[in-house]
């Protein structure tokens, strides 16, 4: 390592390169992916079983604790994983810095709003109403 003099001591201590971030994005993407393997397969089975079912049957099913918990976990993992993926797509293809910045914020906020709406719906169904 012959070039440490150009870097500040702080920069060397933090140990990040010009990308200014480390492995967190990559790692979070893998962990959510791993969680989504069983959750997505479970969702497929559920959708097949509930295909064409009327609402009473659906509500009755969501009232059980396990489906409700699984649905909430699925929503969290899906929107987290999706936001991480869309972030990379936006960063790769949107050249204008201002537009990229704006899109990243809108995309993340939208992911949070949709996740919150979904989780609220599951909780409302499973806890009452």
């Amino acid at each position: 390592m012959a070039t440490p003099r150009l870097r500040s001591p702080l920069s060397r201590a933090i140990g990040l390169g010009s990308a200014k971030e480390g492995v967190e994005h990559w790692w979070a993407q893998r962990v959510t992916a791993l969680a989504l393997v069983p959750l997505a397969l479970w969702l497929v089975i559920v959708v097949i079983e509930l295909a064409g079912a009327d609402r009473t049957l659906f509500v009755e099913w969501v009232r059980h604790p396990l489906p409700a918990v699984f649905l909430v976990l699925l929503l969290i993992a899906t929107f987290y994983h999706g936001a991480l993926g869309l972030q990379v797509v936006i960063e790769d293809y949107v050249e204008s810095e201002g537009l990229r910045f704006g899109l990243l914020i809108v995309m993340r906020l939208a992911a949070i709003v949709f996740a919150a709406r979904g989780i609220f719906a599951v909780l409302k169904l499973s806890l009452g109403a």
């Binding site: 609402r55 899906t78 929107f79 999706g82 993926g85 869309l86 979904g118 719906a121 169904l125």
Partner: peptide, 29 residues
């Protein structure tokens, strides 16, 4: 990558479905 973007759009359907179920019989129908 393309399927990932398409699935991200599909999550809106998932939330629409769950939201409609919690809103009542008519939205669900």
């Amino acid at each position: 990558r393309a399927s990932g973007v398409w699935l991200a759009a599909g999550t809106i359907l998932l939330v629409w479905w769950l939201g409609a179920a919690s809103d009542g019989p008519e939205p669900y129908a």
